[in-house]
């Protein structure tokens, strides 16, 4: 926690310059004529390590993505490996094949390309980064997700962007819910541990009510 707090002050010192430039560098996409691109940002009231622990699991996107029912990865989830994702009913897809392009645990960068599936997202490429951020005086996280994708025949750039942004917004909202719940559980657990040290009986009550 202290470490993260330190990171936060660093970020604040560099200020907007860091966010504007170095972050943008990580979200560089080459956008061709028939493609569209966009960046979304979400602030989450949970520490970076927690958010990143969810995001980095290339083999378990269903842990936070609401539209995914199952995911299988053959072998270790390392750069270049593929995941086969099953999409929930009611959406304009049932499966999607995605490749892990980039996974940087130091810089907190995850890059994924969609290479197949029964949907209309062709040549889709996305980069997701997480950054420490002070939110309401507490250590929180800023998540940035950018993408570039072909505009399919019959749709405008605007439509395509709006659609993908809608999906990403849902994913990020869900990511926020899940991580904030996990963060709350962490706090509950530490309170419980504290109570346990002082009073074993009370601790039991705490865990039951709070979990």
């Amino acid at each position: 926690m202290e470490m993260i707090g330190g990171d936060d002050t660093d970020t604040e010192m560099y200020g907007a310059l860091v966010t504007a430039q170095s972050l943008r560098l990580r979200h560089l996409h080459h956008c061709r004529e028939n493609q569209c691109t966009s960046v979304l940002v979400k602030y989450i009231q949970a520490p970076v390590h927690l958010v990143w622990s969810l995001v980095r699991r290339f083999d378990q996107p269903q842990k936070y993505k609401p539209f995914i029912s199952r995911c299988t990865v053959n072998g270790d989830p390392e750069i270049g490996c593929l995941r086969e994702v099953n999409v929930k009913s009611g959406l304009p897809a049932t499966t999607s094949t995605e490749r892990l392009e980039q996974l940087d645990d130091e810089e907190h960068i995850l890059g994924i390309n969609i290479i197949g599936g029964d949907h209309r997202l062709k040549n889709y490429s996305s980069i997701l980064t997480v950054h420490p951020e002070m939110i309401d005086g507490r250590s929180g996280t800023m998540v940035m997700e950018s993408f570039v994708v072909d505009v399919p025949q019959g749709n405008t750039k605007d439509d395509t962007c709006y659609f993908v942004e809608s999906l990403i917004k849902c994913n990020l909202k869900s990511l926020a819910c899940v991580s904030e719940r996990l963060a709350a559980q962490d706090i509950t657990n530490s309170i419980a541990t504290f109570c346990n040290a002082s009073n074993g009986y009370r601790e039991k009550n705490h865990t039951e009510t709070n979990l």
Binding site: L91, R120, D159, Y162, F163, S166
Partner: peptide, 16 residues
């Protein structure tokens, strides 16, 4: 909201 034709008309391109 917006209706996007993405494999049929869908709310936000998602729900049909």
């Amino acid at each position: 909201g917006r209706v996007i034709y993405w494999d049929g008309a869908r709310v936000l391109g998602v729900l049909a």
